[in-house]
Structures are given as structure tokens and as C-alpha cells.
Nucleic acid binder design. Structure first.
Length: 96
DNA sequence: TATCTGACGATAG
DNA sequence: CCTATCGCCAGAT
């Protein structure tokens, strides 16, 4: 099993899922922003854990504060972002 | 309750 | 641009 299903999440996980559910195509957020929007400022690191454990989330729309893509498969993330019109250069999102 | 882990963030060198 | 450190937080064992 890739990750956890959506029906038994902790309050924190549900909060993060809710925030990501609002993101639109072509929109990119940082882990820190997601944490803050979810009501857990400072929990950027924990947000990474949620994206890693929960399925069916637009994880590719979340990048590090520096714009760096995920260390696991930056190539895939770059492709998914490109598919939504988000440009990336050498593993970094191009903020315009 | 204690300790370790990690798809983070900021800072220093 | 890179690595090293430290602080932070929730989840897992």
C-alpha cells in the first residue's frame, strides 16, 4: 500500500488535506504555507510527512520554501507541474 | 513517556 | 551553489 486512506486521519492530517484540496491547477505552495493555512504554523516538516503517508493528494503542488522540488523524484514532480503550466529549472520552481 | 525519523526552514560558512 | 547545524512539529515504535 502506497499510503494511508482518507477515512482515518488525525486532526492535523485532515487540516492539511483540506488546505491542499483548495489548491488549483497551476498553483504552488510551500510546506510552511500549507502548515500555516492548516492552522499549524511551524509544522512545515510534519506537512512533508503527511504528503508522504496520505494518498490522493496533489503533492506535486507543494515545494520547499527555496523552491526546491522533492528529493525523492524531482523529475516526476517537474513533469506534473509542467503539465499545469508551472515552469521549473534545474529542480527548482520558477516563481514569477 | 522516551527516542528516532523526515517530501522543512533559517542561518552560517 | 554546497554542506553543516540547529530549531521546529507530528507520526511511528
Amino acid at each position: 500500500m502506497p499510503g494511508k486512506s482518507h477515512d482515518e486521519l488525525t486532526a492535523f492530517e485532515r487540516a492539511v488535506v483540506e488546505v491542499l484540496a483548495k489548491t488549483q491547477k497551476g498553483e504552488v505552495m510551500t510546506y510552511g504555507e500549507v502548515a500555516g493555512e492548516a492552522g499549524y504554523p511551524g509544522a512545515a516538516r510534519a506537512v512533508g510527512g503527511v504528503l508522504r503517508r496520505v494518498d490522493d493528494l496533489p503533492w506535486w503542488r507543494v515545494v520547499a520554501a527555496s523552491g526546491r522540488l522533492i528529493p525523492h523524484d524531482p523529475k516526476l514532480q517537474a513533469e506534473l507541474l509542467a503539465g499545469e503550466g508551472v515552469k521549473t529549472v534545474k529542480g527548482h520552481v520558477v516563481f514569477t
